[in-house]
Design a binder for these strands. Structure first.
Lengths: 201, 201
DNA sequence: TGCTAATTAGTCGTAAGTAT
DNA sequence: ATACTTACGACTAATTAGCA
């Protein structure tokens, strides 16, 4: 007798698009023709550099945000919540696989790629109310050049090892996030310093 | 343990609520928008780490509170009384089954998981009047997590060294076990998290 | 081709339900 | 109340599909 059976069979249907803030929608051109959601699923969201910067910062702070935090973040990056959730999932997966590693001072090290420095308000009270990008309205004019590529570790020798490259046997995957060292102090005070909920189990 | 022959489809239509006031708003899952209770199937309440901390503390003090105490607790944790009652029931059941064990100094030992230290006012007069969460003024209305969380949260990426205690000392019957697994986390690190598929046979 | 975002299916924990 | 079951919510991979 096989005990491993799945009793739950229909979970595939519950998410409905609940777009919140209008933003780029890739399927602007072709849509709504007789198509329903099931058909047009997957329109790849393009996440821009500035958005990534924020995402990295948030992820560094807490790789497992709660629902509430997701909503907050999704406002900051101006992307649907679902997209943010998925991004976090995939990032977690990637980290677990050892494809990326977060270094304490705000650096993301990917395997055969340049380091990415995400300079996001790490020092500021993170879950606050205002978006990190203070109004730089504009489209196209980047302002803060979020990502700084410091290509120090290109690719030593990368033969074609196909996908899974095991980077190196360094410290176990454990990241150091969570209170990082210096933290750059400050912040403190300011009243509400929500400790970010911790997501609990 | 899996298969169940009791097929009772869904007869759950009677949910009524007479809650008092503290309603958790995190039913975000099903957008609390136009849904009525009739449409809602059971929505699972998520109990956060801070709330768990309190619950553990209360449970440790007295696993069988009276009605009045339940009300008090439900205010502290900001959850409907019914939820608290159910939580206590489930916790009692879990303890009985040997899935968890409370250690005297405020530690909850679960089976395949790191110890949880619930540091709740164990020293304070527990059934007092003042909730741990000062009803405060939340400026802004967003949950501000006023609780001073000192507990170690069940952290997914803890560098735990597998401190898991030896769980079941004596299985009463032979049908126990369902898994165990340490899951959670990264640590396991590279190595696979074997976990057997169970099922076996 | 490579990336990676989305999808999907499986598992797990446990709150809520049912029966006793 | 207890004992057992059911199913929700969250997570994890593995796969699928899009853009560069």
């Amino acid at each position: 007798m096989r005990a491993a059976e799945k009793m739950n069979a229909s979970l595939l249907e519950k998410e409905r698009e609940k777009d919140q803030g209008g933003e780029q929608d890739s399927h602007g051109g072709r849509k709504a023709k007789g198509k329903r959601y099931r058909d047009m699923r997957r329109s790849r969201t393009i996440i821009h550099a500035e958005q990534l910067d924020i995402l990295y910062g948030c992820y560094f702070k807490d790789p497992n945000p709660g629902k509430h935090e997701f909503e907050q973040i999704s406002e900051w990056v101006q992307l649907p919540k679902k997209v943010v959730q998925i991004w976090f999932q995939n990032m977690r997966a990637r980290e677990r696989k050892g494809e990326v590693r977060f270094i304490s001072d705000g650096t993301l090290a990917a395997v055969g790629k340049p380091l990415i420095k995400f300079t996001w308000p790490l020092a500021k009270p993170i879950f606050s109310k205002k978006p990190p990008t203070p109004s730089n309205n504009n489209t196209g004019g980047i302002a803060a050049a979020p990502i700084v590529r410091t290509m120090i570790k290109p690719d030593p020798d990368a033969p074609i090892v196909r996908t899974m490259i095991k980077p190196d046997p360094d410290p176990p995957v454990s990241l150091i996030n969570k209170n990082g060292t210096g933290h750059s102090g400050s912040s403190a005070g300011t009243g509400a310093t929500p400790q970010t909920a911790t997501t609990s189990s």
